[in-house]
Design a protein around this nucleic acid. Structure first.
Lengths: 198, 198
DNA sequence: AAACTGACAGATATTGACATCTGTCATTCC
DNA sequence: GGAATGACAGATGTCAATATCTGTCAGTTT
């Protein structure tokens, strides 16, 4: 009946659109099929369940976030403290912007992220690896004091959860959050630096 | 009909019990009156509204938390870094214990705390003042590097929100939280200490 | 007369009949 | 004959009728 072949990617995009319009509670597989002009049975040809479909949506969303972030921190010629600061501020700013521009959409994806905790914790693992890499480089170069990169990376992410964990999204509406984040980053960098440094 | 006169304190206790049994959604003023064996009109003699009654409950709860905390940190003869560590660990442990012993009750009080944000932020101000005092003393004694005590106290509380903010209560079920808190406190203390120290 | 009651109006919550949704699959369509 | 359909069973959600709750107050009790 329609020229374009129905593929998974198209269905995921349509699902994202339905989630955007109706929110996570009201978005149904029937809605997705309706938007695509097919029967909902066809959607089930490409995804075994509604859960799997939503999982595909959140995975794509997190993949995009990850790509944005790796691109933003790819700048060469920085010291490790500078690199860590940039990694954190970029990460925070990206989340704050999303939460502020479209709070409802952000809340929707937060619901999906909670539903699919495996995907979310894979994302956290990615962030952890990014921080860990910078910390390890900094220790190797002597810019940071010696220590276990894994433990320190966990500590850095844990200490900044107020600024990146969606649980705190409501706090991000206030502009005080920038100054608070700055103060915490400053304190953490002081704690990380080796004593011989400035 | 009954010997004991009905007073505000008794009503608040009964309300706490009803909240404990039924949860924040289902707890009604009629339930409280029923538990006390009086008509609900009598409750309204002592409290102008259901909101005011719940506010009294959360205020008493937070007052008790505050008392526990001030008692726990009243030990003399500690250095300021030691005092700060003790303040934080005591604060965290108290919350973790409550959340673990009776998660539903903890969730109930969390709902009340959100309902009555004025009471909660007064409580945060109290915690902030406690941290600020230790930080200011530490700066005065040269144990901590110079800086704005207010800014630093905010940073310390902000960096540890994962360990004290009820938003993270679910994370506290894992025993990893102890080690994570320890690592963050260590990093913060390193950042706070003046450079001439150990 | 101070403390309490219980009937009341308006607001909110619960219920249960009805509608929609999820997931399956025998059948239809290119 | 592989892709899509639509009728279906069981689960979940919706909505309007019904019940309960909040807050008031004139009247009762001690």
């Amino acid at each position: 009946m329609r020229g374009e072949p129905l593929d998974a990617e198209t269905i995921v995009s349509a699902t994202e659109e339905v989630l955007r319009r109706h929110g996570p509670e009201k978005a149904t597989v029937v809605d997705v099929a309706r938007l695509l002009g097919v029967s909902h049975g066809s959607v089930y040809r490409h995804f075994p369940s509604k859960v799997a479909l939503r999982e595909a949506v959140i995975r794509r969303w997190l993949d995009r976030v990850r790509d944005e972030l790796t691109e933003a921190i790819a700048e060469p010629g920085l010291t490790q403290p500078e690199r860590l600061r940039r990694l954190l501020t970029t990460m925070f700013a990206a989340k704050w912007a999303k939460a502020r521009v479209d709070p409802e959409l952000f809340a929707t994806f937060r619901v999906l992220a909670i539903e699919h905790s495996a995907e979310s914790s894979a994302h956290v693992d990615f962030l952890l690896a990014q921080v860990r890499a910078v910390v390890a480089d900094g220790i190797a170069s002597g810019e940071f004091a010696a220590g276990e990169p894994d433990v320190i990376a966990r500590a850095v992410l844990g200490a900044t959860s107020r600024f990146h964990d969606p649980k705190h999204a409501e706090d991000w509406r206030s502009t005080e959050i920038e100054a608070d984040a700055e103060a915490v980053i400053e304190l953490l960098l002081r704690g990380l630096r080796s004593r011989s440094d400035t």
